[in-house]
């Protein structure tokens, strides 16, 4: 690993991770990768633990996720998402691959069959960070019982059932809360139904 970092000092917040990830993609910068690793690997491990993966498994998945981050860095497109969001999708897909031994059918943004624009609207293009911040603010503004089902959705292995059990509410209530939450988020972002 080089001792001297030949890059500008990282900017605060999400932009910093985007820049580091782009450095990995463009110049195979191992020091940039190490910085991403120090921030994200322990969080990916925490995510796996919350999903019920045991300690050694979570450790392995966190390391494998970061190796995937290196290998796939060239596919990261900061116009589409921030680094944290992209790393979340890598971790999510890797867990499904490894633990479920199932295929994970995925959208291909270069698919010739794609209908409609592949990229976000032009006025949003330059700033995935601001776009994602608005989404997180919309989630934070939800009524607590709706924010709760959204948050819990990220930590279950089968849809809705585990939340229903945990909160002792019917499955239908979980679904209707999720629908209400998504509707509110759309309204918050200024979209009509």
């Amino acid at each position: 690993m080089p001792d001297i970092v030949a890059t500008e000092p990282p900017k605060p917040g999400g932009d910093r991770w985007n820049d580091l990830l782009s450095l990995v993609a463009d110049t195979s910068d191992k020091e940039a990768f190490a910085q991403l690793f120090r921030h994200f690997a322990p969080r990916v491990k925490a995510y796996m633990l919350r999903l019920g993966v045991d300690g050694p498994g979570a450790e392995e998945l966190a390391q494998e996720t970061m190796i995937s981050v290196w290998r796939k860095a060239g596919l990261f497109d900061p116009r589409r998402s921030g680094a944290a969001t992209w790393i979340f999708t890598v971790a999510r897909n890797l867990r499904l691959d490894r633990l479920r031994k199932e295929r994970r059918p995925c959208l291909d943004p270069d698919d010739p069959m794609l209908i409609g624009e592949s990229l976000p609207a032009a006025d949003d293009l330059l700033d995935s960070g601001r776009r994602e911040l608005k989404i997180r603010q919309a989630v934070a503004a939800l009524p607590p019982e709706q924010a709760e089902v959204i948050g819990l959705s990220f930590y279950e292995d089968t849809p809705h059932g585990e939340i229903a059990q945990r909160l002792r509410i019917p499955l239908g209530t979980v679904k209707s809360r999720l629908r209400l939450a998504m509707k509110r988020i759309r309204a918050h972002l200024g979209e009509e139904e």
Partner: peptide, 14 residues
């Protein structure tokens, strides 16, 4: 997925 990214970023590291 952006919500997932926010969540990942805010998790207490292990």
């Amino acid at each position: 997925e952006a919500m997932g990214g926010g969540l990942l970023d805010s998790l207490a590291p292990e």
